[in-house]
Design a binder for these strands. Structure first.
Lengths: 334, 334
DNA sequence: TTGTATGCGTTATCAT
DNA sequence: ATGATAACGCATACAA
């Protein structure tokens, strides 16, 4: 920086001001400084800059599984706007329980980030407090949050929509594929969607049959297992809603492997509108996942610039996408 | 840090040494320092540490599309080992061409990273040089690289395997679904896989029919388009290989939507063993994508510790996974 | 608008 | 093994 200052005939302070785009620099000197910097192909050291300014210009993004569809989409959406805003994105993937406890124990984010974005990470009370000791704004996506900003969808609503769709097709016995917490992550969403399922039954006047709700680990193979369990019953349901499309994929595959026709013998609905839902011809309730990341990124940017603002909540819309995995119930005249 | 030093009755230098685990600290003082640090819940400022040590402890990971299956897997694999090694992972997703040119123009990684990991990013000559002006080690995954470390698979080999599998089933007219460069990314892989296809034909003594190779944009819908083009011909092939599973998914869906049976009327083989290939019952050639990220991460760690080493190349194994999308050619007695 | 001088919180060098 | 002290490369309060 001294070199640039000398070459431009100014002080390092002016160089600093110029390079940061501060207003109080005359157009003339600004030009000389920029020219000098360009000639020397100089760029400020972000590290030194951060030390001096006491701001990290970094946001910590913590996800349960960086490689999963939902999370990678959200991260990609957030990355775009954070990058745009000049914020570095520090990725933490808390795959297993040990990684998670270590993370909240040691808090590697201390003195390291200006904000935190949690992607579909329900926090326990101690975890929540640990994050808040960081003293930086927090934005959560994928679930309802109290005390922090959040962007999410109506998780009970999507399931209600799915059930109403099936009921509208004449289905009166509807199963649900749910997940149990893999390591206490994801819990609230599973809970809300189950609530939405029950709400759907209530609204459409269908009886609740507890045995028609099966819980499995998240993933395609979980969906397969669940579907087998449901359809091997003496009185299988004529339709099934799945907590997510990936579960639904497994469900459809399992049904077909059992020799059942989808949607002939059993209709299936998912949630997400996964990239592959179209080729799987899966009826689903669409959510805009990348958009969630984008909006969360914007919230982060705002929060970094105006910390201490009231926590805001953004609920993004969803929409039913009817495809070929659902049909009127067999033997009915809809 | 001064507080800790005072509390432990030592100098800040000793605190620094202790906290970094340097050997030249007596067990006694070490204990006192650690205790003091714990009591004050003190952690070193990574930023100050980096400024003083002149090492960023950060690696830049640059990918074309953070949200796509392949890339998110590699990133997740790399994240794990980088985190373990105490290296921050700075993610850059170069979605479109403008983002890409800006990236290589301005080189936001300057003075910011100790190493760079490029994930399936074929670099033009100027881009290659731009990256090397960073003066840090570079590791590439997903493609053959010269002058840098790299971890990849045998891209011609996988396609050769796919073709040999089909030829072994009696297929004599095999189409290929290829991609054209979306913005010059991904080019070499497409090229090598096409070469593998041709090699497969040669090895099995099949004639080359240029019209049986169709190029489409990457993605499920690209696969659909390609399959329609192939099967609408007066003399459609009896089998099709796709450059990747996602293309193959689209191909299978398109064939079925045209009323064709898979594998009855046309067999389909993909490359990847995508998470959903099992439910799609897709025969494919499996590659270990997360493992590629892990290995790349290890290479990065080594490169950061011992810069200037000879570029190493790691070629990971692949394996044919036979599922239900391939069958002996109709009308043959295999 | 511009310059001076101090501080940011460490690491590293050189003594001891 | 430990301590004093000078970098590290900037931002910023203050003065001009």
């Amino acid at each position: 920086m001294e070199d640039v200052a000398r070459r431009a005939g100014v002080s390092t302070a002016t160089v600093s001001r110029t390079l940061r785009g501060l207003p109080n620099v005359s157009a003339d000197t600004r030009g000389r400084v920029l020219a000098a910097a360009a000639e020397l192909s100089y760029v400020v050291s972000p590290i030194a800059s951060r030390l001096a300014s006491r701001r990290t210009h970094t946001v910590g993004v913590v996800v349960p599984h960086a490689a999963r569809w939902y999370f990678s989409k959200v991260v990609a959406g957030a990355e775009e706007v954070l990058r745009e805003a000049g914020l570095d994105l520090l990725l933490y993937s808390l795959g297993d329980l040990s990684a998670r406890t270590r993370f909240f124990d040691q808090l590697p984010l201390r003195r390291r980030v200006d904000a935190v974005l949690t992607v579909a990470m329900p926090l326990t009370e101690p975890e929540y407090e640990a994050v808040h000791t960081l003293g930086v704004p927090v934005v959560a996506t994928g679930l309802r949050a109290t005390g922090t900003h959040c962007v999410r969808i109506d998780d009970t609503g999507v399931m209600l929509t799915a059930v109403e769709h099936l009921a509208g097709l004449g289905h009166r016995r509807i199963g649900m594929i749910s997940t149990y917490a893999d390591q206490s992550m994801w819990l609230p969403v599973a809970h809300e969607r189950r609530a939405g399922y029950l709400a759907g039954l209530a609204v459409t006047g269908l009886p609740v049959e507890p045995d028609l709700v099966v819980s499995v680990p998240f993933g395609v193979s979980g969906g397969e297992r669940a579907m087998r369990r449901l359809m091997e019953r003496p009185d299988p349901p004529s339709a099934v809603v799945a907590e997510s499309d990936e579960l639904a994929f497994g469900a459809v595959a399992a049904a077909r492997r059992m020799g059942l026709a989808v949607p002939g013998d059993v209709s299936v609905v998912g949630i997400d509108d996964h990239d592959l839902s179209d080729v799987m011809d899966l009826t689903t309730v669409r959510q805009e996942v990348v958009e969630q990341g984008v909006q969360a990124g914007r919230m982060i940017v705002r929060a970094v610039q105006h910390p201490g603002e009231e926590p805001r909540e953004l609920v993004l819309p969803t929409s039913l996408v009817v495809r070929g995995s659902t049909a009127p119930v067999a033997g009915s005249s809809p």
